Simulated scan of single mutants.
Amino acid sequence: MAGRKQFDVDEALQRAMYVFWRWGYPEASIDRLTEGTGLGRGSLYSTFGDKSALFRQSLDRYAQTYHPLYDQALSGPHPNPGAVVTAYLQVTLNRIADPNVPDGCLLTMSAAQFPALDAEGQALVRTMIDTLRALLTQAFLAAGADDQEAAELALCTLATNQSLAVLSRTGFSSDDLATVATAAARIPR
């Protein structure tokens, strides 16, 4: 039938997400994207639009996949702010340990390459980070932190999370990453 996709669009988007995750936006060339998705250029463009549009769809997919895990981890109840840090960073450690996904974090990679993104991509990255920060702040408040402490701990936890992603890409062991997470959870006590 004419106009009917001869491939799984959802699977192609998943594969594109992995290309951006592995290479970052600037290095995720159209050649890498076609190779990674198994699609020809025409199918790639007609299905997803240009590279920037495909990147934003991939980042949305990433958020749809991983942000519910953070939501669940932060839903509590948590006996203290340190337990919030532990729950949040455990999601990151679990993702990093997954051998089926690239090292690091697509959101961290994208934030590090912020200047290379178009305005829509930059806005999406910033919105995603701000959303996680707000979720963390609320979880810290629910765990007994005051407003200032909750805001500070949310920012520190985000920074630690980003650091874990970077360290994992540079080959730090899972034991080293767990040490960072454990030490970070001791900070608010």
Rank of each mutant, 00 (worst) to 15 (best):
M1V: 10
K5R: 14
D8E: 10
E11P: 00
Q14C: 06
Y18N: 14
E27M: 02
D31P: 05
D31L: 10
L33S: 02
E35K: 14
G38A: 04
L39Y: 04
G40F: 03
G40T: 12
D50S: 04
L59G: 02
R61G: 03
Q64H: 01
T65V: 06
T65S: 07
Y66A: 02
L69K: 12
Y70R: 11
D71I: 02
A73G: 03
H78K: 01
A83R: 01
V85C: 03
T92A: 08
D98M: 11
V101K: 08
D103E: 15
G104Q: 12
T108L: 09
T108S: 12
M109R: 14
S110P: 10
S110F: 12
P115S: 15
D118P: 04
T127K: 15
T127A: 15
D130E: 13
T131V: 09
T131I: 08
A134I: 00
T137G: 06
F140I: 00
L141Y: 05
L141E: 13
A142I: 00
Q148A: 09
Q148N: 09
A150Q: 07
A151C: 00
T157I: 04
L158I: 12
T160S: 09
N161T: 11
N161V: 03
Q162H: 13
S163N: 11
G171F: 00
S174Y: 05
D175I: 13
V180N: 01
A183H: 14
A183D: 12
